[in-house]
Design a protein around this nucleic acid. Sequence first.
DNA 1: AACGAAACCTGCGCGC
DNA 2: TGCGCGCAGGTTTCGT
Length: 270
Amino acid sequence: MPELPEVETVRRTLLLKIKDKKIIDINCLYPNIIKTDMTYFMTHVINQSIRDIKRMGKYLIFILDKNVMIIHLRMEGKFFIKQYDEEIDKHEHIIFTLDDMSQLRYHDVRKFGTLHIHPIDNYLKAYPLNVLGSEPKDKDKLDFYHQIHHSNRPIKGVMLDQHIISGLGNIYVDETLFLAKIHPSRLASKITKKQASDLIDAATKVLSKAVELGGTTIRSYTSSLGVHGRFQNELNVHTKQGESCPVCAHEIIKIKVAGRGTYVCPKCQK
DNA sequence: AACGAAACCTGCGCGC
DNA sequence: TGCGCGCAGGTTTCGT
């Protein structure tokens, strides 16, 4: 569930707590999270310090001395910082012991998260960041239009595609389409230049507001590190099935688009 | 080539 | 109460 705003909130919070701490040990209890060769991972992360944490789209990028760790939280990945002698939860899969004997623990109920390691000098050219689209705030609107206007996919599917634009997930794409007054099922090929531009503007606006409010906290995603988002108070359509549209008062319905649960105001969104 | 569906996992809420 | 089932979601992989 973490999308760009939640990942950004995690980034900021984590950085305050672990910047310049050295990783002195790693305990990997569920190795499938690590998508790099395990020996390479261990030898290239231990004894390096966390110099910075960056973010691209939904990826967290831990900048170490000579390497970077690129982490995707997928649906339920979280980080916790605990003391070395605290009991290990069954959903904590990777434990980094830091040089002050605190531990950075990766927690993931669904075990869908991923972790890649690359040398610091070429990580932008390596998978997975090399195939990532720009974030909405950096996306050229005309490029976006040209990229999608031959596609027969519904616009929602296109906007969820991280190769085209990065950062949006199911929550923010529903909100973006509502703001732009475009129906999620509309084929990308039917989107005009003006609408393509409106979509990028709406996505940029939604994401920046959500970052400002610390992300969205719904359902199980009660965040890591006590991070409590407040954007759920700003949602217009997502999770609002059966409620009234804040613009026209028509009932908000839930449908399935691109295989995803989708909330839409059928009167406002055409 | 380009799209949709299944798979990856687990917990939860539902109906019986 | 307890069981099985479907659903949820981000992304990759498989199948058409």
